[in-house]
Deep mutational scan, measured.
Amino acid sequence: MSIQHFRVALIPFFAAFCLPVFAHPETLVKVKDAEDQLGARVGYIELDLNSGKILESFRPEERFPMMSTFKVLLCGAVLSRVDAGQEQLGRRIHYSQNDLVEYSPVTEKHLTDGMTVRELCSAAITMSDNTAANLLLTTIGGPKELTAFLHNMGDHVTRLDRWEPELNEAIPNDERDTTMPAAMATTLRKLLTGELLTLASRQQLIDWMEADKVAGPLLRSALPAGWFIADKSGAGERGSRGIIAALGPDGKPSRIVVIYTTGSQATMDERNRQIAEIGASLIKHW
């Protein structure tokens, strides 16, 4: 067993022997301040990774656009098919120029040779490549099948209805392509620590998230040296922004954090800054 596999296998073990965790309302004060600064709703939840206990939450059962955070769930569904012998990570998928959609920095470079399922998941999570996500959605049967996968996990809230990039439209009061912070946090925890996926697939999923290259201005910008984070960000229309993450000190994750916002007129930089400040408060009061 590799060191990384050992780390993920012992996530519940280490967490069980940690000192009790206590909620700190100071972080919620910052979440509410972010709402004021952005002029928009902000949803927040913080779960203990081992027990699933909610440590703090704000608007945990209000719907927010998922945006690209759905790509972690998508690759979880792909990995479940791999575990069941219905898919192979090494299978190569070929596609054409007509398949390319807006923001496809990886797939646009491989029109000639195609990409493997493993490479597509890596591109979808680490670079948020939209064509990679659409190609992977095709392998599982489309958005409705991802929703069905989530329902089978016990998540009857999260739903995907459309493809990239239309799913980022974020129309107010439109339930399409949305989740709730509580539902997303619980589902992410199941994917990373539950028995739904094999140990190898859980490790692969967290490795992809740990290698995320496009979430630097968010929670990662607030992390002290030595902290662990595996995350996936999302951005959408109407001032929408979000991030889902597993993080913790001492090089291992111990909490799940989900943050979503929508309806702001603020710039992307300002949305990023507010999420980073929430992260800084979380870490300060850990």
Rank of each mutant, 00 (worst) to 15 (best):
Y44P: 00
L167V: 13
A230P: 00
S240L: 02
P105I: 07
W227K: 00
V257G: 01
M153G: 08
V106K: 07
C18K: 02
S233K: 01
A123N: 04
A148D: 14
M66N: 02
W227I: 02
L19T: 15
T139I: 13
G142T: 07
I93C: 06
A266N: 11
Q88I: 11
K53I: 14
R220Y: 02
M1N: 01
E145D: 11
N98P: 09
S57M: 13
V157S: 12
A230I: 07
L73N: 05
R59Q: 06
V31A: 08
T186P: 08
L120D: 00
N168C: 06
K144R: 14
I206H: 08
I11A: 10
E270R: 11
V78P: 00
S104V: 04
L192N: 02
L188D: 00
A182V: 15
Y103L: 04
R255N: 02
N50H: 12
M115G: 02
I229E: 02
E210D: 09
I278E: 00
A132M: 00
F149H: 07
S254G: 13
Q86F: 10
T178A: 05
I45M: 13
R63E: 06
S240T: 07
Y44T: 02
S128Q: 00
M153H: 10
R162W: 02
G85R: 10
I229Y: 04
T126I: 09
E108S: 11
V21Y: 05
A182D: 10
A15T: 15
G52Q: 06
H5R: 08
P172Q: 12
K190V: 12
Q86D: 13
E26D: 09
P253D: 07
H156G: 15
T179R: 00
Q37S: 13
G239A: 04
Q204F: 07
G242W: 00
I45E: 04
A77W: 06
G234N: 01
R59K: 09
N173V: 10
T107F: 02
V21T: 10
L47I: 15
G226T: 12
G234I: 00
L282K: 02
S57P: 02
K32P: 01
H285Q: 10
I259C: 08
A280H: 13
H151E: 12
E166K: 12
L28G: 07
D113H: 11
V106T: 07
V257Y: 05
M127D: 07
T139L: 11
T147D: 09
A170V: 14
W208A: 03
F14S: 08
S201H: 15
Q37M: 14
E164M: 00
I283Y: 15
D269E: 15
G76C: 06
H285Y: 12
I125Y: 00
I171L: 15
G239Q: 03
W286L: 04
N130P: 01
T261Y: 06
R41S: 09
M127S: 09
I244Q: 01
I278V: 09
S68P: 00
R162K: 07
Q97L: 14
T131S: 12
V257T: 06
C18Y: 06
T107Q: 01
M115C: 07
I54E: 11
C18V: 08
L167E: 03
W163K: 11
G154I: 02
E61R: 13
Y260P: 00
G236S: 07
A183W: 08
Y44F: 12
H5A: 08
R92P: 08
R92H: 10
T179E: 00
K32E: 10
M66Y: 04
C121Y: 00
L47P: 00
L135D: 01
I140V: 09
L218C: 05
Q4V: 08
A200T: 12
N134C: 04
V31H: 01
N272V: 04
A132L: 00
T158I: 02
G226D: 11
P217N: 11
A266L: 14
L223D: 02
R63D: 03
T107E: 01
L196D: 11
Y103V: 05
A245C: 10
L55W: 07
V72D: 00
T69E: 02
L146E: 02
K213L: 13
G43V: 00
T69F: 01
R273G: 14
I3T: 10
L197P: 04
Q203C: 02
A185P: 00
G194T: 15
G263V: 04
K252E: 14
E195Q: 13
S201C: 07
G141E: 06
L136Q: 01
I243R: 00
L188Q: 03
G248R: 02
A222T: 14
T187H: 05
K30T: 15
D212R: 04
H285V: 09
I3L: 13
P165N: 08
D155C: 02
H156D: 14
N50D: 15
V258S: 04
L135V: 10
W227A: 03
N168H: 05
P165A: 07
A84F: 09
K232A: 01
G76A: 14
V78A: 06
T27H: 05
G142I: 01
D48T: 05
E270H: 10
H94L: 13
S96E: 13
A148W: 09
E35W: 01
I45G: 03
M180V: 14
D36Y: 13
D83N: 04
S57R: 12
P65Q: 03
T178H: 02
T138R: 15
E195D: 13
V157E: 12
L38Y: 09
K284D: 14
L218R: 02
L136F: 00
M184I: 14
A16Y: 08
F70P: 00
T193K: 15
G85M: 08
L160P: 04
A222H: 10
T138E: 15
N98E: 15
A15K: 04
M153E: 08
N152D: 15
A246R: 02
F14P: 02
S221C: 11
R81P: 00
K109G: 14
G76K: 00
W163F: 15
I3R: 08
T178M: 03
S128H: 00
L136K: 00
E169I: 10
S51Y: 08
I45Q: 05
A40R: 03
Q4I: 10
C121H: 00
T178G: 03
R220N: 03
A40S: 10
E35I: 03
A246E: 06
V29G: 15
G194S: 14
S68T: 00
F58W: 14
